[in-house]
Design a protein around this nucleic acid. Sequence first.
DNA 1: CGGGGGGTTGATGGACATCAACATCTGTGG
DNA 2: CCACAGATGTTGATGTCCATCAACCCCCCG
Lengths: 238, 238
Amino acid sequence: MSFDRTPLMRRLGGAVPEEELELFDSLGRIGKKYAIGHDLGEECRADESIMILQHGWTMTYKILRGGDRQVIDVNLPGDVLGMRQILFNYDDYRIEPITEVFAQKMPADIILRSLGKSLEIAAQVMWAMMSDSAFSPERLVSMGRREAPKRVAHFLLELGARLDRVHLSNKNGYLCPLSQTDLGDILGMSAVHVNRVLRDLRERDLLTFRIGKVKFHDREELNRYAEFEPSYMERRLH
Amino acid sequence: MSFDRTPLMRRLGGAVPEEELELFDSLGRIGKKYAIGHDLGEECRADESIMILQHGWTMTYKILRGGDRQVIDVNLPGDVLGMRQILFNYDDYRIEPITEVFAQKMPADIILRSLGKSLEIAAQVMWAMMSDSAFSPERLVSMGRREAPKRVAHFLLELGARLDRVHLSNKNGYLCPLSQTDLGDILGMSAVHVNRVLRDLRERDLLTFRIGKVKFHDREELNRYAEFEPSYMERRLH
DNA sequence: CGGGGGGTTGATGGACATCAACATCTGTGG
DNA sequence: CCACAGATGTTGATGTCCATCAACCCCCCG
């Protein structure tokens, strides 16, 4: 895999015939910068297009009546954004950059048409879209049945695995722009408790979360502790 | 819409050209019965096929190390099952009938190929697959940021809306084979607390949940109380 | 008749939220 | 260059929502 490729290509790479990959990727080479505060979902909805994140992170979230925020999805380079906003009426969901972001936009019907181009591409695109974290049932398992420390550990491991697919992570950790407040709104807990849980995990020498940096001390032990089984993120079918 | 149609056709009906609908639906007319205890997901995984539920309900769930169960998804007539099992390595997820179930099975590549048949079908199939409840971000919102009574109310309203799409619900309620224990494992709470919450909702004259039957007393008030906004389940894009 | 699944209610405890005070660090404008 | 405000992080005290444990109910079915 050469490195002038976009993150999406790095994710799709491998099984797809070379020309088709090039074709598909070339559809939206032209990208644009977006600043913190801009709602990417609104833009997708407005002109029925999707976006492919090239650089930077975004979060998809909803604000409840009482002011609480729930993050649905953390979007990483290579992720496909906006498909939900186009297919459904999610008016009150925002997709907002955490850092400055670079993304390419393309009309939704190009994606939908490309599904017909080849069976392989169809499977790949479906896979890319479904594998975004909101679609990961493990989030539901965590929220429903894992206590806070395991929930945090599991999520950070999952993020690591997702970043790994686009070569933005290594075995010891990764750069992570999330605040403790963000973490709380992702995992359904208060920022204060996130803080205590992180201290706990640090003192038990499992992982360190600090100023945009996640560091794993004992990954094996961590996997066991959080019941993290990375295999569920891998592709089957060919 | 005529009534000799399958639930999936009732969901897809409307925008799709008639011949294409017939063609698509005829692909898997042959169905089969499945009893409680049978793992449909295992069967899908084994021969790389998906299933379309025609009659009865199933649940997709995972058992954790400590024995806790988390239900990922309640599957209703018209839902597409098994796509996740085929695309990913979800070994430890089971799809099990709640009642006796009738489902049609079809090879996954027929579905994937059908995506190319027409833009409309592609959009429809994507929509059908993504709109299964595990893909509904509102579940995450509930688990993360709604207290138990609203969580229960919201879920039961959502179920009603989903059943409505296949004409299995009316304004006052619907038949529902779930136990209180199931409800707890769906929403991440103990069966005991589910019981108390249901009593509370009943005494406040909002809804009644009893022996396989859900009855709404004041749907408007309930929508407001649970912050349920049914529009997010509707299709956009044509 | 006995056993098992589901439901109901009370008592107790724990995990986590909330409130509050304070420390750091950042960028911004005077 | 300093002052200041705002975002983020840290820690303690207090309270509450909900889990857990336990006893008992009904009903169905073998």
